[in-house]
């Protein structure tokens, strides 16, 4: 699905990602953990195509395409989705309107016919149920005045609407109470198929009890310093990152 090779990224001359190698196949869930400031969001943003980063070395292949050359909207249309760590409030743009625009753009890109109003409403209702969100959100402005938890659920709702191939969830679990966490995890599990893949960025092992990863990576100072199965997450939960830091210092 996605193949990241020796990816090096700088912001204003500071190297933040220092040679990332990561390969995710269809049907897999990868978790990325790591201390604050280690570069997790940077990686997520670079994959989504945010502009402020300089890619100095390396390559990213997504579904056979050179991702680096693609505009952010084309990445989205090809099926790459980022659930933002901090979803942006957009006053004046109604959820329903925004989603219809987005979904139809993606459909047009693939030469599919666009939804009419009725079909679309039906689809939205179905997906709202998945994240247990009320229909009244559809007439509100995107994320405007949403609570922290509502914003995160809204990201999963949008993911469900867009049906991406690869979803990157950047700390979608942060700030969620236990019920909301289950709702989000449940949403992801329901959307999971053999054809799609997830990269889940998190600080907490508890999410991984619900979304069981195939691989867990530890990102530290811009490098993946450990990879393992879900036991690695348990180990981190228990022992913190000190051992990772020590190990990488001795290398």
């Amino acid at each position: 699905m996605i193949e990241i090779k020796n990816l090096k990224v700088s912001v204003e001359g500071n190297e933040i990602l220092k040679g990332i190698n990561l390969s995710v196949k269809a049907g897999e869930i990868h978790a990325i953990m790591g201390p604050n400031g280690s570069g997790k969001s940077t990686l997520a943003n670079v994959l989504a195509g945010r502009e402020d980063y300089d890619i100095t070395e390396g390559s990213i292949t997504f579904m056979g395409n050179d991702l680096i050359e693609m505009a952010p909207e084309d990445r989205a249309r090809e099926g790459l989705f980022l659930a933002f760590q901090y979803p942006v409030e957009i006053p004046g743009v109604r959820m329903a309107n925004f989603l219809k625009h987005a979904v139809n753009e993606v459909r047009k890109y693939h030469g599919q016919k666009t939804y009419d109003a009725r079909e679309f409403l039906q689809k939205m209702r179905e997906k709202l149920k998945l994240v247990e969100m009320d229909e009244k959100f559809l007439s509100r402005s995107v994320n405007d005045g949403f609570s922290g938890g509502e914003k995160k659920r809204n990201e999963i709702f949008q993911m469900a609407m867009l049906e991406p191939h690869l979803s990157i969830l950047d700390e979608t679990d942060s700030g969620l109470d236990i019920d909301a966490l289950k709702i989000v995890a449940n949403g992801v599990n329901k959307l999971r198929t053999k054809e799609n893949a997830f990269i889940v960025v998190t600080h907490y092992q508890r999410l991984l009890n619900y979304i069981v990863p195939d691989v867990v990576h530890v990102l530290y100072q811009g490098k993946i310093v450990e990879s393992g199965d879900k036991e690695l997450a348990m180990h981190l939960e228990e022992h913190g990152y000190d051992w990772v830091k020590e190990e990488s210092a001795t290398v």
């Binding site: 945010r50 004046g92 743009v93 925004f98 989603l99």
Partner: peptide, 25 residues
Amino acid sequence: AVFYLQQRGISKADAFTLLRSAFAG
């Protein structure tokens, strides 16, 4: 906000138009 909209498949030009209309909205 422009990037957020782009990430959902909306072109940059459309994102600008959408946000300006929203301001009027």
